[in-house]
Simulated scan of single mutants.
Amino acid sequence: MSAGSTTETFGTVAVAGVGLIGGSVALGLRDRLLARHIVGLDASAQALEEALALGVIDEARTSPGEWLSAADLVVLAVPVKALSPMARSLAPFLSNAALITDVGSVKTGIAVEFEALGVRNFVPGHPMTGSERGGVANASAGLLENAVWVLTPTERTPLTALARMRRLIEQLGAAPVVMPPDAHDKLVATISHLPYLASLALTHMVARDERLSLLAAGGFRDLTRVASGDPRMSRDMVVENKAALREALQSFSRQLEHLAETLDDPDELLAAASEGKRTRDNLPVVKRSLLPPKHDLVVAVPDKPNQIGAITRILGEASINIKDIEVLAIREHGGAIRLGLEEASDVDRAAALLREEGYTTRHRG
């Protein structure tokens, strides 16, 4: 980092867990030229192969080792239940100079774990973003833009590491917010983990009465969207934060009981409804990008003759106009290209057509 510069470029970055969030962080670093070389660490060879094919990472590793000592930035993006085991497996190989962070949705446990391991420069973090569609194929640098990214330092977190992490988050287009780990877990229990359990309860009611499913329209689907997330990961998330979540459930139960009482008092119910509308309308709208939308599709290209020609033919026969083609990566076993398409609707159509022909694709944004 040069004197007076506000931008820090990392030589080697290790992303442990190449899924939706880990892949999005990797793409954010790549798109904003914040990393020269990105290594993906994942137990799934399939996830690594897909990440390589789509140009999300430059190198794949299935286990920790001495290679980690070259990493200037390490991002733990594994499911929350796997964070502590991953921390223990990485710790012996980490450089004392490396900046270390995680993206888990529960902070108290991982903060204690890293302190016990004696790892320096660890700054616990949680980007408040995501999607019900998981996997690296759905990763996007735009997922991080304008998102609140909570940092939960402890008394042992070096101020220099915290400052570097804040700067990195800003460079990725997100907004850093700092608070203690236990405060984060209590707040997230209410605004994230409680809505998940409420969604489960509502969907279970529908599952047990077929008549309800006939009437479950757009509003119900919007309210229960988070129930579509990965069941195992969601289960682990709420279990890891069960103490704070129990408190939130008790508060929620009291709110429901109060609303039940207002059914006999129309004026009080109207006041409650007005407060709810006012609160909901005043919630900030997160705009994922201030730039004009890009209608881009990234396609993994096998190392076979005339693949670009085959791809353009498939889309041309479907009357999908390709406005731009960019080669993103060339590798021993294939590469990746970016297709700039004319309309947003063309991206979904093109992805479906190419996947039918055996190609791997990723929306880029």
Rank of each mutant, 00 (worst) to 15 (best):
Ile322Ser: 05
Arg246Trp: 01
Glu275Ala: 15
Leu270Ile: 13
Asp303Val: 05
Gln255Ser: 08
Leu259His: 06
Glu275Thr: 13
Glu356Tyr: 07
Ala147Met: 01
Val123Cys: 09
Phe114Ala: 12
Gly17Trp: 14
Thr360Ile: 07
Asp346Ile: 10
Val119Ile: 11
Val327Lys: 02
Tyr196Leu: 13
Met179His: 03
Ala161Trp: 05
Ala161Leu: 11
Leu245Gly: 12
Gln255Val: 05
Gly4Lys: 11
Thr224Asp: 01
Ser44Arg: 01
Arg167Asn: 15
Gly19Tyr: 09
Leu151Met: 13
Val301Asp: 04
Arg235Gln: 12
Ala344Gln: 14
Ala45Lys: 09
Arg280Ala: 14
Ala300Trp: 11
Leu339Ser: 06
Gly135Asn: 06
Pro85Ile: 03
Arg133Ala: 03
Leu34Asn: 07
Glu145Gly: 11
Val226Leu: 05
Asp72Ile: 06
Gly173Ile: 00
Ala77Lys: 08
Val106Tyr: 14
Val75Arg: 03
Met128Trp: 09
Ala26Trp: 13
Gly19Asp: 04
Lys81Thr: 01
Glu50Phe: 01
Glu66Asn: 08
Ser345Gln: 15
Leu99Cys: 14
Ala91Gly: 07
Ile311Cys: 02
Val75Cys: 01
Pro195Tyr: 00
Glu132Leu: 05
Arg164Ser: 12
Val150Ser: 07
Arg221Pro: 01
Leu339Pro: 08
Asn321Ile: 10
Arg156Ser: 14
Ser105Asn: 09
Gln46Lys: 08
Leu117Asn: 13
Lys186Gln: 06
Pro305Tyr: 09
Ser228Glu: 08
Lys81His: 10
His126Met: 02
Asp303Trp: 05
Ala198Tyr: 04
Arg61Ala: 10
Leu315Arg: 09
Glu50His: 08
Glu342Phe: 11
Lys287Asp: 07
Ala97Val: 02
Arg235Thr: 08
Ala35Trp: 06
Asn241Val: 10
Gly19Arg: 03
Glu275Leu: 14
Met205Lys: 04
Gly135Ala: 07
Ser345Lys: 14
Val25Ser: 05
Asn321Phe: 12
Gly22Pro: 04
Ser213Pro: 00
Leu223Thr: 15
